[in-house]
Every structure is written in C-alpha cells, then in structure tokens.
Design a protein around this nucleic acid. Structure first.
Lengths: 197, 197
DNA sequence: TAAAAGTCTTAAACTAGTTCATTTTTTTTC
DNA sequence: GAAAAAAAATGAACTAGTTTAAGACTTTTA
C-alpha cells in the first residue's frame, strides 16, 4: 500500500467526526510514523513502555495478555481502518501488560505520545475527534464487558461471528477461543455444533 | 446535600482535567438539572430514550439489563463523585436496554442532551474534559472485559473487593452476584470460602 | 411489633466448560 | 514437495458454576 492510499484511509477515518482544512491534514500527516510488521512479529511486548497509538492501513494483529499460567487472553483483533495499541501504558508511561502480534503482514501509521500531545495544541479539533472516538469505543466495551459475563460461550461466538464477519475468516480457531475466553477444544465443539444447526 | 456542596463536588470532579474560569463555572452549573430519587425508584427503565447523563452527588445506584429469562446483569454501581447513565441511548436517541435503580436515597446532577451539545459550543474546553474522562473509562472497561473472561468468579470477587472497598459494604450479596456474573448461591459460597482464608 | 417479603446459607443433583491424551488435517518451512 | 510444526477434532474424566429446594436470618411495611 502506497503513502497516498494510507493517508487517504486515515483522513477518511478522521473525517467521520471532524472536518480538517488542507493545511491541517498536511500538519496531521506530518506527525505520523509509518510502521511495517511481518506476520508473527511483535509490535509490542509486555514490559515495554508504549510509544505509539496505531492506525492499521493493512493487515491484522492480535492484542493479548498472558495469565500466570502463560495462557493468552486476546482482548481485540485489529484490522484495516481500526485503531489499536495500549492506551493505558501510552497515557501513564508505565510498562505495558500487553503483547501485540501481527497475524498477517501489516502496515500501520503510528502517532507518538509527544506528537499526540502536540496535536491537541496545534489542532484543538482533535480533542473532539478523540472524545467521539473514545465515546464510541467505550459504548462497545461496556456492552462487551456485560455480555462477557452474562452470555454463554456459544452465544458469544454467534455474536462475534455476526458482528465481525470479515474478521472471523482471517483468524485461527485457537485465537478465537482465546478471545471468546474458552479452550480451543471447547471452541472446536461449539463450531461443530453451530455449523450443524 | 445543599446546592453549594453539590456544585463544589461536580466542579472539583471537572477540575481534575480542565481549568474553568468563574464565568465558565457559572455557565456550566446553569446547564445542569437537579434530580432526587428515593431508594428502589428508577432513574431509567428499558425502552425509554435516555434524556440525561448523570453525576451522583449522594447515594448509590445500580445500572443493569435483564436477559431473556428476566435475570439481572449489573454493569456498574454508581456512587458519589461518579458519572453514570446510558451513553449509548443518550447519544443515539434510541430506546435504552438498561435500568437504573437507586439502592439508597440518591441525589444527582443531570445534563440533558441539548445542553451537552450546547456545552461544546459554549465552552470548547469540555471536549477535552470528556476526551480524558472517556479515555480513562475506556482503559478500565478494556481491562474489565478482559478480566471478566479470563478470571474465575472468585478472582473477580477478590478484585472487586480490593478496587471498590467503599462500595462493597453498601450493596447486597445478591446484587454483587449479578455484577460478578454468578448466582447468589455461588456468591454465598465464595464469600464463605474467601473469609475463611 | 407482627407478619410479609426479601436475603442468605446449605446441600444434592446437574451442566457448561476444562484437562489431558491421541489422531487427523492444515500450514509452514527448507 | 517432503518433513516438521502447528491447528483442529474427538473423547473420557474432571471441576467451576447452576439449579432446585428448603430452612434461617434480616429488613420492610402495615
């Protein structure tokens, strides 16, 4: 994917919530860093202090933690036109508990913490952009934390498939199990059962 | 609680993230509505379109949905100095799926949707306030949706008790069970077990 | 302040989901 | 394109959490 295409993608994403002048667009683009990661490479490993917030222009990545037993718990799959990172470490500058690993060759645009802070001074409209972006994310995480607790694994799988039909075919069953919160064995059983219905 | 006390409480909450002039403070306060709810009364019922976002100056409320079997799933307990409501219905103007019920006599300050929109025009600094407020909430809900899936009920209980030690004594075990995502019977077992340790 | 309603506890039988072990299928790598 | 590695499927024995039921305790209400 060339520069122009990835810049169009991120600017279109931003224009959902705010309008930028040509000059502001140029200024914004100048604050971004291009990053490429090969399949299976890490964008982030636990213990590191998070340097960037990322926008994905191409590819797919998984964001996860490891529990005391070393078992992964995936908190999101990030694909094209999505934002990802670890907001907590990015903001507090404390070591992250997350890993971010590419499940496909991926291309991203990153904004550093210094440029993120600068952005609000230079183009205050971005306060609005992030206000709305975080508001929408918050709404979906509130729903998700409720559903995670109140639905059965089978219901969570059916909901995921409905909501993220583009993503479900790009990830392994094992990773899906780590997202849904069950073992790969039980995931296999559920999929067999649901497909039979 | 008198007007002055509740205004001081909300202005202090806001001053965590932005500084307001005296004039801005007055303007902001003028956009708020005072609401009182008796114990067991509803601030919101499913099917209604959410009119306000709320700041609690006194009391305790539970925010919950009912599943197809009529079982409640509590998504948060809101006490003094917390914000609550249903952001989804407030923003989309679609009917809410949530109930909000006072578990104690409670006093709140509400901002209507019209005034919320007006606020950003009149005092653009509030974009920043809400950007930071939502960012912080988002960070804690991301963590929570991960933990809800990866921890056992006992671990979730221990974590809740540690994090919300002031709240845990103000709510019933039954409501706590509906928050943790288990039956009251199993909640009882866990509490007996944890206290024995 | 009695009685009604709601909450908490305990226990036995049950189910959703785990663990462990083995085989088959698919993907990766040289 | 063969060998190695990883993912998926299957099944049996297990555990965390549910269901149902009944009795004890606490709070609310008339």
């Amino acid at each position: 994917m060339n520069h122009k295409e990835s810049h169009t993608l991120i600017l279109n994403n931003i224009s959902r919530f705010i309008d930028l002048t040509e000059l502001e667009k140029q200024k914004y683009i100048s604050l971004l860093t291009e990053i490429k990661v090969q399949k299976k490479d890490f964008l982030l490993q636990a213990g590191e202090i998070v340097k960037y917030e990322y926008f994905i222009t191409k590819g797919c990545l998984k964001v996860y933690t490891l529990d005391e037993d070393g078992a992964p718990h995936i908190s999101m799959f990030a694909i094209e036109d999505y934002w990802t990172g670890d907001l907590s470490s990015f903001m507090t500058k404390e070591p992250s508990k997350y890993y971010i690993k590419a499940t496909e060759h991926s291309e991203l645009l990153g904004i550093s913490r210094a440029n993120y802070d600068l952005l609000f001074q230079e183009i205050p409209k971005f306060e609005r952009f992030y206000r709305i972006l975080y508001q929408k994310s918050l709404i979906s995480y509130i729903r998700r934390s409720n559903h995670g607790i109140s639905l059965t694994a089978e219901e969570r799988y059916i909901e995921f498939k409905k909501k993220y039909s583009q993503t479900v075919n790009r990830i392994t069953q094992k990773d899906l199990a780590a997202y849904i919160g069950i073992t790969p064995e039980f995931m296999s059983k559920i999929i067999t059962k649901v497909n039979r219905m």
